[in-house]
Nucleic acid binder design. Structure first.
Length: 287
DNA sequence: AACGGAACCTGAAAGC
DNA sequence: TGCTTTCAGGTTCCGT
């Protein structure tokens, strides 16, 4: 799914719909969302009668805290939560339905997920949650910690940014956008970045997250994902390989790193050996 | 231990 | 037109 801004959007609306609400009935329509050892009936039984006290987010995980226990929800690639009235027809790909009451209102909160990469885990603790690095939005991004983390890994900086233990919430889109804003080549070994470049990367990350989150907030309760047909692509380089760079007009190119695609501007984000060649040429001329 | 790649799913779009 | 291939914003497992 969705990356940090979209999950934060989901958290906001889930909190509106669920905080203080009582689950009258829970229905789980597909066991593939559940952890090994759980059945739809177990999960439904664990939820019914519970009251939601809090909805939290860390990276791309959501935690719905109940008066007893909690539920962790991950949206995978295509998951979304939405509110529905009691008499609304089933939705395509509806995987979980919570029939709740809040005050005298009765309605439903539904989880929709075509590709089923999402997770729905009733548990008081979740190891994956505990392993997450600092949340890129809530905790802010500490340049020194990011620099140290990047120096420790021998992989491309783009791939490192997807590691949720380094920084929680960055996904394939935000990584590409941030590297473009920072004018850094996605293929640079993460160890090769200078402190100055990591500083630029932090600014790039903050810029793309802020921008995307603002768009998500403005969208209201139903946030269309960019791959849905009819949704305009709000991103600067993501999904725009073959089109001109918005900065310099050079045709943006697509590469594949660890089986994920990356778009880059060959001119604005040149490999470093080209930059040092330029630097040498310049210093020769000036000397 | 750390890394790249495949697998897990479904649907839409592009290619033939 | 219809069949086939490719690709999609994530995570995890498996082999090297």
């Amino acid at each position: 799914m969705p990356e940090l801004p979209e999950v934060e959007h989901a958290r906001t609306w889930l909190a509106v719909w669920l905080r203080g609400a009582r689950v009258r009935e829970a229905l789980v329509f597909d066991a593939r969302l559940l952890d090994e050892g759980h059945t739809p009936d177990d999960v439904a039984r664990a939820l019914s009668g519970r009251t939601v006290t809090e909805v939290a987010r860390r990276g791309k995980w959501l935690r719905i805290t109940l008066d007893r226990g909690a539920i962790f929800s991950h949206l995978g690639m295509t998951g979304r939560w939405s509110r529905a009235e009691e008499d609304e027809p089933d939705l395509p790909h509806e995987r979980v339905r919570l029939r709740v009451s809040k005050g005298r209102d009765r309605y439903q909160v539904r989880y929709i997920d075509p590709r089923l990469f999402g997770r729905f885990v009733p548990a008081s603790e979740l190891p994956a949650w505990d392993a997450l690095g600092p949340d890129a939005l809530v905790d802010g991004i500490d340049p020194e910690r990011l620099f140290a983390g990047l120096s420790r890994r021998k992989i491309a900086v783009k791939v490192a940014l997807l590691d949720q233990e380094l920084l929680a919430g960055i996904g394939n889109i935000q990584a590409q956008e941030a590297l473009f804003f920072a004018k850094l080549d996605p293929e640079r070994p993460s160890t090769s970045l200078t402190r100055d470049e990591v500083g630029r990367l932090v600014l790039g990350l903050e810029r793309t997250l802020r921008r995307t989150l603002d768009l998500a907030i403005a969208a209201g309760p139903r946030l269309p994902y960019v791959e849905e047909k009819g949704t305009p692509n709000p991103f600067v380089v993501y999904g725009r390989a073959g089109s001109p760079c918005p900065e310099c007009g050079t045709i943006l190119e697509k590469l594949v790193q660890s089986a994920r695609s990356t778009v880059r501007c060959p001119r604005c984000q040149p490999p470093r050996h080209q930059m040092s060649t330029l630097g040498q040429a310049r210093s020769k001329r000036s000397s």
